[in-house]
């Protein structure tokens, strides 16, 4: 195998890692602040992809269609997330982990069938928008423009999250709520709506991940089951609630999986689980410090 193949596979892995990051950043924020393990996060991701598909059908396949869909679909998912938080989750914050997990798992089942009802069980696919087709060549490596686009979006989202969490008043409140909810309440800040906001933000990120991946995969039932396990492992490996830990482990997983395809094509599928398992065994409390 030559360097070019390796390099392009590496870059494709990185771009996949960016999607993992966008999705798992939402999951880890919810983990850190609400302390809920949200299995339905994968369903929100799937909804993001399906909603993007529908939005593009309505808006037309033109250039503007894709960008508008990228705007609308995640926002729609954020609204759905808000409804979930206000309507259901807030009743179980005091319950044990397993119960919270099972409640969110019930949403996985419900959303799975709702998606089947609304969109049917056939594969859907979206074309890559005109401006992002083709591929780059540099250093002999070959990278589809869409993947390069993802490589750009990932750091942008990370930067945006950093700015929000560390440079805005609201973000500071979110971090304070993650550290000590009661203290936030005592200081006269309303932690209830911070919970709602963070869950909606988590949903927005999941929806964004789904909308971004939509043009590169078959949009289908079962998208949720695959991504949620990856996202959970990424979040736990990175350190619960730690966005930067999620970034690091997302990239490790993405690149690992992608290079696995190159070296052990038949068994590439085991690599994410293997990596996560080994990392958890070596560093049981996550790569970076957990928010808990």
């Amino acid at each position: 195998m030559d360097f070019a193949t390796f390099a392009s596979q590496f870059l494709i892995g990185l771009s996949r890692g960016m999607i993992f990051f966008i999705v798992s950043a939402g999951l880890t924020l919810v983990f850190g602040v609400l302390r809920v393990s949200n299995f339905a996060h994968g369903s929100l991701y799937m909804l993001g992809a399906f909603l993007a598909y529908t939005a593009i059908l309505w808006l037309g396949q033109g250039e503007a269609g894709f960008w508008l869909a990228l705007l609308i679909a995640p926002l729609a998912v954020a609204v759905i997330a808000l409804v979930i938080e206000r309507g259901l989750l807030r009743f179980i914050y005091k319950r044990e982990h397993l119960m919270q997990m099972l409640l969110t798992y019930s949403l996985v089942l419900i959303f799975g069938d709702l998606v089947k009802m609304v969109w049917g069980s056939d594969y859907k696919s979206l074309p890559v928008p005109q401006a992002l087709t083709g591929s780059f060549h540099f250093l002999e490596a070959n990278l589809p423009v869409y993947n390069a686009f993802l490589l750009l979006i990932g750091p942008l989202v990370a930067l945006g999250l950093w700015f929000f969490l560390f440079r805005t008043h609201l973000g500071k409140l979110c971090r304070a709520t993650a550290a000590d909810r009661e203290m936030v309440d005592v200081l006269g800040q309303n932690s209830t709506w911070i919970f709602a906001l963070v869950f909606a933000l988590g949903g927005w990120l999941a929806g964004l991940g789904g909308a971004l991946i939509a043009p590169t995969v078959n949009i289908a039932m079962g998208m949720d089951a695959n991504i949620i396990i990856y996202a959970f492992l990424i979040v736990v490996v990175g350190g619960l609630g730690n966005v930067w830990g999620a970034l690091i482990s997302s990239l490790i997983m993405g690149v690992g999986e992608s290079l696995g395809v190159l070296f052990i094509p038949d068994f590439a599928i085991i690599l994410p689980y293997l990596i996560a398992g080994v990392l958890l065994i070596i560093r049981p409390s996550g790569l970076l410090r957990s928010a808990w």
Binding site: H97, I229, F232, L233, I270, Y273, A276, G277, L280, I281
Partner: peptide, 29 residues
């Protein structure tokens, strides 16, 4: 490996290693 971890971490490790077994079964034609 799992019983060394607590709570959610224990759960996640059982999930990761379990899925690893699934993936091996799924791929070892």
């Amino acid at each position: 490996f799992s019983v060394r971890l607590r709570g959610l971490y224990f759960g996640m490790l059982t999930l990761a290693l379990g899925q690893l077994v699934w993936a091996i079964v799924y791929r070892w034609n």
